[in-house]
Amino acid sequence: MMASLWQYVLSGVVDGAIFALVAAGFVLIYQVTGLINFAQGEFAMIGAMTAAALATAGMPTLAAAGIAVLAAAVVGALCYLLAIRPARKSTGVTLIFITLGLDVALRGLALFVWGTNPLSLNAFSSGNAIALFGGALPPQAMWVLGSDVIVFAALYLFFRHTYAGTAVRAAVANPPIASTFGIPLRTFAFWSFVVAAAIGGLGGVMIAPITSATYDMGLTLGLAGFVAAVLGGLDSLPGALVGGFVLGIVEHVAGGLWSTGWEQGVGFLILVLVLVLRPQGLLGRATRRA
């Protein structure tokens, strides 16, 4: 019993690391634009599908993965330029609906391009499962966790130790003053979409060898990312990281002990509980600026 519980936790860690990546992109866009991007999960789908399709066509796995991340970034840029920017003067609800439209449009586009069949991607490195205190981690787990470390470290360094990062933080804290200082908010919004899409795409590439890639994987991944981000307080990158792991572990443990079909339900129940009881997230401060 304890052994299988531990195994659920380990599987949850792997999934959680990917949720954290999707959540990071989501938090990034929210921080910069105040927008919840319902299409975030589709960036991950694009990453996964592109990598799997290229690898199936004979490209080396790592090269396919690299191109896939780039493809996701380009899609992110197009989403911003074609759908978000033209509507930037709209109210919140309109923008919510637009990202919702992006979500279904990207999923439909994937159907056209890749069809309904799942595509598989080889693990990035071969080798045996890594044994850990009686449980086992797939070799892919090291890649997943490694990309988490790199992405979150890079984001941390950017925001804390670069001039541009400081400017973004200033702009988010006080948009009118930031624009007086010539901080280009619109450019930041554009790049937040590009980077968020690239990070989401990376998450998709990482999960493809574990679950295989399908055109409709984006919604589930996106929602898991949302839950993780909300758990972390919506506007906190460290929160997204912690939220991702918490969600991954809880889903796997609940799914393992109960029934896998309920996994998603459990995730959303957590979301709802957090929204109601602790809207500032697990790590958030109790009082926040209005």
Binding site: F97, I98, V104, L106, R107, T116
Partner: peptide
């Protein structure tokens, strides 16, 4: 037009129309 289209491919058009409506005729 596109014999390869399967499944709920209409969602692509629904999404595009939704976005276009919101931008052009909110």
């Amino acid at each position: 037009v596109l014999p390869s289209a399967r499944g709920d491919f209409q969602s692509f058009f629904l999404g595009v129309i939704l976005i276009a409506m919101l931008i052009l005729l909110p």
